[in-house]
Design a protein around this nucleic acid. Structure first.
Lengths: 133, 133
DNA sequence: CGGCATCCAAATAGATACTG
DNA sequence: CAGTATCTATTTGGATGCCG
């Protein structure tokens, strides 16, 4: 009776494809979502390996949150915690190969973030718009 | 005195580049982060435009949260709310051109999410690992 | 240095009911 | 249908202090 959807490609199998994509994205967000995980991985890829280094580089993160994020990243196979014996033992976090699979994603997000910042700047942040606190 | 960092590319300008990337990623996460925003955009790109449609497609979202996310997406220039007069007025949400700039990012995330799901599956979810609740 | 434990404040989200 | 309002439950996070 009513007209079908006007969107090209709509019809059987349409919602299912959508559901599949949504599932994938939701999986990704579940593991690397949140404010910090990607940022920690990026900071580590740039050579930061010590807890305090990471806390300095990843602006705004607290020790407690960093600690818990590192644990999750380890549990998910992105990083490993290395403890080297010594007078004060040295603790370093290293990226595992699996974290490399995020490269494409990180690059895409970096590019998008940069262009978005440009866009906002050009719209002259009039105060009503989206500016971070 | 002490050895410099062993990471290739380390040195002057290293931390600054890192900071720049972190800033970009943090910008991106601020606008499109969270569990729902990307998923809503994906669902809309697949032809869902009505509130109830979206709520059905984006599994698990409540009316209240959907409502507030739609408002943020509109405020950030990704979508627009269209009200068509009629006996019951028709309300539809449409993607604006700016949402297209997310395509690359969404694709990267979709690919990553799919490969991650495969990886987890192949590791045979032994129960200790990362499985969504 | 690299955390963990505790307490407390704030942000988030679910359930439910109600409206135009 | 497309939400809003209210209340409450849960999560999250900052601050602080302590410990090896």
């Amino acid at each position: 009776m009513a007209a079908k959807k006007l969107i090209p490609g709509a019809g059987k199998g349409f919602t299912e494809e959508c559901t599949k994509v949504l599932l994938a994205v939701s999986d990704a967000l579940y593991v690397i979502g949140g404010k910090w995980k990607l940022m920690i991985i990026i900071a580590m890829a740039r050579g930061n390996s010590r807890f305090t280094e990471l806390q300095r580089q990843v602006t705004g993160i607290s020790a407690r949150v960093l600690s818990s994020e590192l644990k999750e990243l380890e549990a998910n196979g992105f990083i490993i915690k290395k403890v080297t014996a010594g007078y004060p033992v040295t603790i370093e976090y290293e990226l595992l190969p699996y974290s490399q699979t995020l490269e494409e994603l990180v690059e895409a997000m970096t590019r998008w973030g940069m262009q978005h910042r440009e866009k906002i700047k050009n719209e002259r942040l009039i105060g009503d718009s989206v500016v971070k606190p």
